[in-house]
Simulated scan of single mutants.
Amino acid sequence: MPFTSSRWGSPASFGAKAYPGTKRSYGTSGNSFVAVVEFGPRLRAWAVTVGGVSGHPASPHFDDQAERYANGDLRPVCFYPDDLEGHVGRRYRPGR
């Protein structure tokens, strides 16, 4: 992991710990948002949030990211208008 502890002022942080009787280190602290960005002629990115993107338990987005996070299954991030096709539930237009 290329991040230092947040203890040292890193805004992006990750901490891991090995537990007795296990062969691997497990993430124990850090950010609740993970993203991977590919820079090139056209920017591409994938991300996941620990639980979901809503704080309301009745929302379908309350825990819709939990399984993705646990499995490391990142979702595509939309940067360009054509990336949004088929992904927009509603549009916000201030003043209308």
Rank of each mutant, 00 (worst) to 15 (best):
F3Y: 11
F3W: 09
S6M: 06
R7D: 12
W8R: 13
G9N: 06
P11W: 08
P11Y: 06
A12K: 07
F14V: 14
K17V: 12
Y19D: 11
G21T: 03
K23W: 04
R24A: 14
S25L: 13
S25Q: 12
Y26G: 03
G27V: 14
T28M: 09
S29N: 10
S29R: 12
S32E: 09
F33W: 12
A35P: 05
V36P: 03
V36Y: 12
E38I: 00
E38G: 00
E38Y: 00
F39S: 12
G40Y: 08
G40I: 02
G40Q: 07
G40N: 01
P41S: 11
R42T: 15
L43M: 15
R44F: 00
A45P: 13
W46D: 05
W46L: 11
A47M: 14
V48K: 05
V48D: 09
V48T: 15
V48H: 03
T49N: 13
T49A: 12
T49R: 14
T49C: 09
T49L: 11
G51V: 02
S54Y: 01
S54L: 04
G55C: 02
H56G: 00
H56Y: 04
A58V: 05
H61C: 08
F62C: 09
D63A: 13
D64P: 05
D64N: 15
Q65S: 09
A66G: 03
A66D: 04
A66L: 15
E67W: 06
R68L: 08
R68V: 01
R68W: 02
Y69Q: 06
A70K: 15
N71C: 05
G72V: 05
D73H: 11
L74T: 07
R75I: 13
R75T: 11
V77P: 01
C78Q: 14
C78P: 07
F79R: 02
Y80H: 15
Y80V: 08
D82P: 05
D83V: 10
D83Q: 11
D83N: 12
L84D: 09
E85C: 03
E85N: 09
G86W: 02
V88T: 14
V88M: 05
R90T: 04
R91C: 02
Y92V: 15
Y92N: 06
R93C: 05
R93M: 08
R93P: 01
R96H: 10
R96L: 11
R96I: 03
